[in-house]
Nucleic acid binder design. Structure first.
Length: 649
RNA sequence: CGCGGGGUGGAGCAGCCAGGUAGCUCGUCGGGCUCAUAACCCGAAGGUCGCACGUUCGAAUCCUGCCCCCGCAACCA
């Protein structure tokens, strides 16, 4: 049986946090699970490297897009290797074979009439060089700069998405597995499919860094279509050698974060339908890791002291701990809170105290009393209960994993670990050891424990990549064993047992949390001065003339009213009197000043900055602040009492 | 009335679809044990299941209304 499983391909931003690892680690555990069942698994991941963002960043640095992006791709590959991600193929959208596949697919759809040329009508802001839809405009003006926009038509190629809406709806109905969890189906149906779909613009003329369309080189492929096609191109679809495609398509599982479900559940099936290909069996949109209720990327900006850097986490606690936390702690399908404390408590309680300690005490007693695995003995009622649980655990793990529910699978395994720890208390092997007449019973008890340890190690192999192999090796067992080795009784007795170092050293949570908080703070300080250095460098580079400086109009103003901008974190909305004029100004200083203390302050304002809307509030100027290396802000004000309206130069 | 998801002991979650003793993990407190990584085992305290109304012999679960949080969506000038 074959099993084709994919992660989305990632945009290599370089700012990695464990949220990024979440999808990939779950996929990896699922892939390993199926491999251990003896299935023919193909597991892919990769990077999404085209688009305007990359183009602009590269230009800023004066390098080619590919030269800019490649080190970042190497970084993500290193991260996957640190976390033992067992992908079979890594695809980059800049691989020539991928680009070729994209072109062939566009050509195919163009030939069949599913892609056609038309015009895209929108509102164009000339200074911003941006096209906006009617819904994006703010009071009919450009949402970026607040200036007037003009209605404009732009040539674009469209994909007949509209045609497929009814078919997709029907597919959802006929295949309840297709999109999970169920709540996502409601979201897609109610928000998009029910009202019918609009044809999708699938080409861009303003983005050069992309795959050029074969039938019109002035256009590049829309990045989302480009990216989705990776699931086919990685299998060699439409290439000279499409054996992988023949063998593995369609996908058994596309796993992704909930934010991109729309693309996978609507656009992707429509494209596949247009190509006449079978649809993926299952799409699953999982939840996010949150810090204080916010997405990780956001909370990073707002300065939380949680350690989220995967490299550092692996360095401190090991790949197994990071994998375990992600797989065990986050309720699958919904969002989950991340804190260092929860991470440490979870790892301590389960891996160190329960599992690691079980292995340690079992092997210690075997070595003290027998030196090798004892013979299987006569079974009493307690033994039978333990053995039955051990033999029944795989079925529970399998049924959880069929639902992709790693937390449930792991909790079934740890129920066995727990039962074994309790079994030790019930059978009191240390007491048996004191009575030579009970040597046989002692042997039987320790054999049962050794078996449970062996089986637990095998059960844990899809989830953890280091500890299970060590445990199996220490019992002289094949570390590559699959699930077929799970029947109780696998140990024959007499196997050499090797003393292990503690698998998961216990962490002093309080101390560690302090250390982590210090580390995060120190790291932030380290990275911030760099930013200011860079700023200074660019200042040096770009000398300006006095005339240019003269273009900036700066005046003294007085804050007459101030309030927090609703729904924003740092934005304050000030009403500033500048001479006879009163202006509305929004500034990002909410972390450092309260609205109350702002009122009455003399401030220095750039008054000829083009107006903009921030969080929907009009800002007609910029209040000047000094910023230190740590991002602390201080208002700049005239050193002697000055009338509002006075100019600054 | 935009659309979804959520509100359950101190923390994080399960239970809800198919009403009937409110469960799990962590934390707290007490006890046991000493093989083991001060780990393990047992017990206890702690909940008006967001609020209100209704259906029912009986509601965390079903109905209706409301409140709060989050995402889809403009944020650090």
């Amino acid at each position: 049986m074959k099993y084709y499983i994919t992660t989305p391909i990632y945009y290599p931003s370089g700012k990695w946090h464990i949220g990024h690892c979440y999808t990939t680690i779950i996929c990896d555990a699922i892939a390993r699970f199926h491999r251990m069942k003896g299935e023919d698994v193909f597991f892919t991941t990769g990077t999404d490297e085209h688009g305007q963002k990359v183009e602009k960043e590269a230009a800023k640095r004066g390098v080619t897009p590919l030269a800019f992006i490649t080190p970042l791709v190497d970084e993500i590959k290193e991260m996957w290797s640190l976390l033992d991600v067992s992908y079979d193929r890594f695809i980059r959208t800049t691989d020539p074979a991928h680009a070729e596949c994209v072109q062939k697919i566009y050509q195919k759809l163009y030939d069949s009439g599913d892609i056609y040329k038309s015009e895209y009508e929108g509102y164009y802001c000339v200074p911003c060089e941006s096209m906006w839809t009617e819904a994006q405009l703010v009071n009919g003006k450009c949402p970026d700069c607040g200036r007037a926009v003009e209605r404009r038509k732009e040539e674009s190629y469209f994909f007949r998405l509209s045609k497929y809406a009814p078919k997709i709806l029907k597919h959802y109905g006929d295949n309840p597995e297709f999109l999970q969890p169920k709540s996502r189906v409601n979201e897609m149906v109610n928000n998009f499919l029910k009202e019918g779909l609009q044809d999708l613009s699938v080409s861009r003329t303003n983005v050069k860094w992309g795959v050029p369309l074969p039938f019109d080189e002035r256009h590049t492929a829309y990045v989302w279509v480009d990216a989705l096609i990776n699931y086919l191109s990685v299998l060699g679809y439409l290439s000279a050698d499409d054996s992988l495609f023949k063998k593995y398509w369609s996908a058994n599982l596309h796993l992704m974060g909930k934010e991109i479900v729309r693309f996978h559940a609507i656009i992707w099936p429509a494209i596949l339908m247009a190509l006449g290909l079978p649809l993926p069996e299952r799409n699953y949109g999982h939840g996010w890791l949150l810090i204080g209720g916010e997405k990780l990327s956001k909370s990073k900006e707002t300065g939380s002291e949680e350690l989220t850097d995967p490299y550092e986490l692996v360095k401190r606690y090991g790949a197994d701990a990071v994998r375990y936390f992600l797989l065990r702690e986050i309720p699958f399908g919904s969002d989950g809170e991340y804190t260092n404390e929860r991470f440490l408590l979870r790892v301590n309680a389960d891996l160190a105290n329960d599992f690691g300690n079980l292995v340690s005490r079992t092997e210690a007693m075997i070595l003290q009393n027998f030196g090798c695995v004892p013979q299987r003995g006569k079974e009493e009622a307690v033994d039978k209960e333990l053995i039955a649980l051990a033999n029944g655990t795989f079925a529970k793990v399998e049924s959880a994993m069929e639902k992709l529910n790693a937390p449930d699978a792991l909790s079934a395994i740890f129920a066995l670990v727990s039962r074994a720890n309790k079994y030790i208390d019930e059978t009191t092997p240390w007491a048996l050891a004191k009575d030579p007449a009970k040597k046989d019973r002692l042997g039987a008890v320790l054999y049962n424990l050794a078996e449970v340890v062996r089986m637990t190690a095998i059960l844990l192999k899809p989830f953890l990549t280091k500890a299970p192999a060590l445990v199996l090796k220490s019992l002289s067992q094949d570390e590559n064993a699959g699930f077929e080795a799970l029947q109780f009784g696998g140990l024959k007795g007499g196997e050499k047992v090797e003393k292990l170092e503690p698998l998961f050293p216990r962490i002093d949570v309080k101390k560690e949390m302090q250390a982590v908080a210090e580390f995060v703070r120190a790291n932030r300080k380290k990275s911030e001065p760099k930013k200011t250095e860079k700023k200074q460098e660019t200042m040096k580079k770009e000398l300006i003339t006095i005339d240019e400086f003269d273009k900036v109009e700066i005046r003294v103003g007085e804050v007459v009213a101030c309030e927090k901008v609703a729904k924003s974190e740092k934005l304050l909305h000030e009403t500033v009197r500048i001479g006879g004029e009163v202006r509305s100004v929004v500034s990002g200083i909410g972390k450092f000043y309260t609205p109350e203390e702002m009122v009455g302050k003399k401030v220095v304002v750039v008054t000829n900055l083009k107006p903009a809307k921030l969080c929907g509030v009009l800002s007609e100027g910029m209040i000047l602040c000094a910023e230190d290396g740590e991002g602390n802000l201080s208002l700049v004000s005239p050193e002697k009492l000055m009338e509002s309206g006075g100019s600054v130069r």
